[in-house]
C-alpha cells in the first residue's frame, strides 16, 4: 500500500513540480505571487484538447504508441499547448501585469492576478462547459511493478517527459546567455540592467517558460486524470507549496518541492481522512515558512 501511494505521489508530484517552475520564477523575478498561474495549467490542458480534437477530426495521425493511450497528436498537442499558453501569458503580461508593474507595487499585481484568475477560469467554463473531458477513451492496462505497484504506461511517459523538461531547462539556465541573464536578473535586477541585460526581455522569457511548463503540466494532468475547468484552481495551493518549499527562483527546488507535495498528499491518506487531503499543501506551506522561509534551496535575502 505504502509503495502504491509513493508511486502515485511521485506521479502527481511531477505534474505539480512542472507547474510550479513558472510560479517559482515569477515569484523570484517578477516579484509577486501570481494567483492566476494555476489557470495557465487549465488553459494549457484545454489548448491541448483543441489540438487533439482538430487532429482527430482530420483523421488523426496513425495509431497509438505501443502500450500508451496516445500517438503523435498528443505530442504535437503538448507543443501547441505550450506555444498557445505562452502567447496567452505574454498577452496578459502586455495588457495587465507590465502596465501595473510600471506604476504600482507588487501587491497590486497580486490583486490583479486574483482578477485574471477569475477571468481565465470562468472563460474556460463558458467555452468548454463544466463536464469533465478526456483526451482519449482508450483503455490502458496497468503495468505491475515489483511490490505490487500498478502504474499506467501513460504515467511512465509523464515521469520521463518531466525529467526531459527539467534537463532541458537546466541546460537553458546554465548554458545559454538568456538563461544566465535570467538567473542574474533573479538575483539583482539593477545589477543585471547596468550590465547590459534587457530585463524586459528576461521577463518575457519568464512568462514563456512558466506558461510552457504550466501547459505541459496541464496536458499531462488531462492525460492521466481528466480535464475540468477547476483543474488549475484546485492546484493553487499545491503549486504555491512546491514553489515556496523549493525556494523562489530555484528550478530543482520547484521540482523537488512538487515531489514533496505530491508524496505528502498521497501518503497523508494513511493517517488522515482522504477528504482532508487538500489541506496538506497548506500545512506544508505553514511549516516551511515557519522553519525555513527562504525554502529548501532558496538563497537567504
Amino acid at each position: 500500500m505504502i509503495l502504491q501511494h509513493t508511486a502515485d505521489g511521485i506521479l502527481s508530484g511531477a505534474i505539480i513540480g512542472l507547474g510550479a517552475i513558472g510560479l517559482s520564477f515569477t515569484m523570484k523575478i517578477l516579484r509577486f505571487a501570481n494567483f492566476s498561474h494555476s489557470e495557465l495549467l487549465t488553459w494549457g490542458a484545454y489548448f491541448g484538447l483543441i489540438f487533439i480534437s482538430v487532429a482527430t477530426a482530420m483523421g488523426g495521425f496513425g495509431g497509438t504508441f505501443g502500450p500508451l493511450s496516445f500517438g503523435w497528436p498528443l505530442i504535437l498537442a503538448l507543443v501547441f499547448a505550450a506555444v498557445a499558453t505562452s502567447l496567452l501569458a505574454l498577452l496578459l503580461h502586455h495588457l495587465i501585469f507590465e502596465r501595473l508593474a510600471k506604476v504600482t507595487g507588487h501587491m497590486t499585481m497580486v490583486f490583479a492576478s486574483f482578477g485574471v484568475a477569475l477571468l481565465l477560469r470562468n472563460a474556460v467554463l463558458l467555452i468548454f462547459g463544466a463536464d469533465p473531458i478526456y483526451y482519449s477513451n482508450t483503455l490502458q492496462f496497468a503495468v505491475k511493478l515489483p511490490g505490487n505497484v500498478r502504474v499506467l504506461p501513460d504515467q511512465v511517459f509523464l515521469l520521463g517527459l518531466t525529467i526531459v523538461v527539467v534537463i532541458a531547462l537546466h541546460l537553458f539556465l546554465t548554458r545559454s546567455r538568456t538563461g544566465i541573464a535570467m538567473r542574474a536578473t533573479a538575483e539583482s535586477p539593477d545589477l543585471a540592467r547596468v550590465s547590459g541585460v534587457n530585463v524586459n526581455n528576461v521577463v518575457r522569457w519568464v512568462w514563456v517558460i512558466g506558461a510552457s511548463g504550466a501547459a505541459v503540466a496541464g496536458v499531462l494532468y488531462g492525460l492521466t486524470v481528466q480535464l475540468r475547468p477547476e483543474l488549475g484552481f484546485a492546484l493553487i495551493l499545491p503549486l504555491f507549496a512546491a514553489a515556496i518549499l523549493g525556494g523562489a527562483g530555484s528550478l530543482y527546488g520547484a521540482v523537488l518541492g512538487g515531489l514533496i507535495v505530491g508524496l505528502s498528499e498521497n501518503l497523508s491518506v494513511m493517517i488522515i481522512p482522504t477528504t482532508y487531503k487538500p489541506a496538506v499543501p497548506f500545512l506544508l506551506i505553514l511549516a516551511i515558512l515557519y522553519f525555513r522561509p527562504q525554502g529548501l534551496f532558496g538563497e537567504k535575502s
Binding site: 546554465t174 546567455r177 544566465i180 541573464a181 538567473r183 542574474a184 543585471a192 550590465s195 547590459g196 541585460v197 534587457n198
Partner: peptide, 8 residues
C-alpha cells in the same frame, strides 16, 4: 557567468 552577464 558573471562575466557573461557583463557582456550582455
Amino acid at each position: 557567468e558573471n562575466l557573461i552577464v557583463g557582456g550582455a
